[in-house]
């Protein structure tokens, strides 16, 4: 195979149908950028999950005076029950860490949390806040297992999972992500069809050359390779633009706009962007390669 021949053929082909080539590059770039944004969103979600799940705890509120819980019998938790619970919880294999928060500590935390609203703080006394065991799970999704193990233990009034507060938020994110996938899939389909058409037009406009090539016994590979590479080149250039777009998205939308605004959460880093870029190229090359291959099989028979 003579590389110079193949390269000059590709050059001729791309120039001859420049508008189609540009259209192809643009569609591929857009579809891959959306695809990449979907991947980035996925990483954003997992970055947030890591960040938040690391902080969420299960609160095991213990009975106080006059508690109405079924395990309380109307009286506060006894010292015996408390130490028994503490022992059992820390021995549980699901649990990574557990600590005890007294009413006084709960009050301190409450004051810290609501220092913006002194009215509220003034109306609360340590007695009004329940003492609790704060449990950090090894796997934050295993809340239900822990809750069912201790729900009926004496001295436990209520078990609460902070993660449950985050779940609706993540559900929304998952839905957005799904939308991104669907849009990306439609875009990719459009890109595949457009590339197919570009290659078909290219093959048609060079039917004289390919006719002669067939006649003098050029192999299928030799005849089809320039077209195939043409398609793949469009895929590579499109992927490069998509990668640039994704980097811009990260630099402008995430770093400049969102990060200063939303200080309470983690964001995707450059490492996430870099991890996605190879996938853009892989998908770009695969989809243009496959679409060119099948177009050529249909329209450039020996």
């Amino acid at each position: 195979m003579r590389a110079s021949f193949v390269l000059s053929e590709i050059g001729i082909g791309l120039r001859r149908n420049l508008t189609m080539t540009i259209a192809g590059v643009v569609t591929v770039a857009i579809s891959l950028a959306i695809f990449g944004a979907g991947l980035l969103a996925q990483r954003q979600v997992s970055a947030m999950k890591d960040f938040w799940y690391d902080k969420v705890e299960v609160s095991m509120y213990l009975c106080g005076d006059g508690s109405k819980g079924a395990n309380c019998n109307g009286s506060a938790v006894t010292d015996e029950q408390r130490s028994q619970l503490l022992q059992e919880v820390s021995a549980n294999p699901l649990v990574a860490k557990v600590y005890y928060e007294s009413q006084q500590q709960a009050f301190e935390n409450f004051k810290k949390q609501f220092k913006g609203s002194p009215d509220l703080v003034q109306n609360v006394t340590p007695d009004a806040l329940p003492e609790s065991l704060r449990v950090k799970l090894k796997d934050p999704t295993k809340y239900e297992d822990l809750a069912s193990a201790f729900r009926d233990s004496p001295g436990v009034e209520e078990i609460q999972d902070q993660k449950a507060l985050l779940d609706p938020f993540f559900r929304v994110l998952r839905r957005l992500q799904l939308v991104a996938w669907v849009v990306a899939a439609i875009q990719i389909l459009a890109a595949v069809l457009l590339i197919g058409n570009t290659i078909r037009v290219a093959a048609f406009s060079r039917r004289r050359e390919t006719g002669i090539m067939r006649l003098v016994g050029a192999s299928n590979l030799y005849i089809q390779l320039p077209f195939l590479l043409e398609g793949v080149l469009v895929g590579i250039v499109g992927a490069a633009f998509a990668a640039a777009g994704l980097a811009a998205l990260k630099a402008v939308l995430v770093d400049r706009l969102l990060k200063p605004m939303l200080k309470f959460t983690a964001f995707v880093g450059w490492r996430d962007v870099i991890a996605i870029v190879p996938w853009l190229f892989i998908v770009g090359v695969a989809l243009t390669g496959i679409s060119s291959f099948f177009t050529l099989r249909r329209h450039l028979r020996v």
């Binding site: 003098v216 016994g217 192999s219 299928n220």
Partner: peptide, 21 residues
Amino acid sequence: HWKVPALRRSIGCVFQDFRLL
């Protein structure tokens, strides 16, 4: 199928319409 090119290399062809590039 893939041996057809070799066959065609052993046959030269000329046509009424020349078929030059």
